[in-house]
Nucleic acid binder design. Structure first.
Lengths: 198, 198
DNA sequence: TTTATTTTAGCACACTTGTATTATCAAAGA
DNA sequence: TCTTTGATAATACAAGTGTGCTAAAATAAA
């Protein structure tokens, strides 16, 4: 019988190395050779887990969305001081607040740019966008149902607005970290949510 | 004497062809050869105007920011019905409202992703970001000085918020044009600006 | 120890890339 | 008309790419 290796764990390890290379050298330099060197494996070994570079990139991108989704799903909403704080905490998970999240956000950003001309990535990009919007719809609806929201609030536009605000801030922080700090992001988000309430 | 060619005009022509290739095939495929084919020139001719690919890309990115800046600068604010409408019109210039602007926005988006790992592009990216923020600061200040703004408005956070909202919507529209249409963008922007006023 | 199977390592191939070199062309002044 | 000089074109080249293939190594049950 052969060696026992956790296939999935290895693939995740390789995907994380891929992120590292992308953040450090850009998507252009995320070559199989560079990624193999980053993991310490040979190119052949890498190919054993991912038949092609395309598969590797696809998997690496899927892993980002999975991890973000998991993090939000596992967040305990009940511990928050108030419903608004619970919503704010959940949304904060989408912002690059620490190094780990920063890497994921940056990788996602780079992938999104590529999704513009890559049909396969586009599909995933669309799906994640829909999931995110659903989340924001849920957030706005919650505020209304709890009677916290202002009466004159336009639910549909508020969803677009909140969604764009979050992604916009994330992008700004990635590209210009000292021009929009993490604290400023959180303050702005908090400020925005409060502005939706009576 | 040789043939007389308007150097600058030719460079702009090449840069526009570069945009075309980037939008159609992605930045990866914006190779010297592909761009040369797009313009109908030979690779050698292209090199006559741009010594290196890096110079070409740099110039192409600068051209985007120049054109956006010019468009805003030349916009006549006095024709608007109201100050708020004037601000809204100016900001709308930043949104991908027609094909031309869409191309520019998409190119800028792709370049921004590359600026994360390219120091030279990063410099331009920073400068444009600062210019934009100044513009948004001006917009918020205008609302206050005209006495239109709500009293409890936090100017600093409003700037971050408006800036992130605009860029966020632009990105969403680029990536998912039918999930956030041009009309929805404009409506949301208008809604947002009104929410800042008494 | 033997053996079946998975994993790894390395090489080769065809291809594309940016860039350099060289030659050709076209037009204006002597 | 001939030379000069900017513009264009064609070709060459070295470096780097993804990927297919083959042989060796490693491992755990028999």
């Amino acid at each position: 019988m052969p060696k026992l290796v956790d296939h999935d764990a290895k693939k995740i390890e390789i995907a994380k190395a891929t992120w590292k290379v992308i953040v450090r050298e850009g998507l252009d330099n995320a070559t199989v050779r560079n990624i193999a060197r980053e993991t310490g494996m040979s190119v052949g070994s890498l190919r054993h887990y991912f038949p092609s570079q395309s598969d590797l990139l696809q998997f690496s991108m899927e892993l980002v969305s999975e991890r973000v989704a998991t993090r939000i799903r596992e967040k305990n909403m009940m511990t928050a001081e108030s419903p608004v704080m619970a919503i704010q905490d959940a949304i904060s998970e989408l912002l690059p607040l620490d190094e780990e999240r920063r890497v994921e956000a940056e990788v996602w950003f780079v992938f999104s740019a590529k999704a513009l001309v890559d049909a396969r990535l586009k599909q995933l990009s669309d799906q994640v966008y829909n999931d995110m919007r659903q989340g924001f719809e849920w957030a706005i609806q919650s505020l209304r149902k709890l009677g916290l929201a202002r009466e004159d609030l336009r639910a549909d536009l508020e969803v677009y607005r909140l969604h764009a605000l979050v992604d916009g801030m994330a992008v700004h922080h990635l590209l210009h970290p000292d021009k929009l700090t993490y604290r400023q992001m959180v303050d702005t988000l908090s400020y925005h949510l409060r502005s939706l309430c009576k």
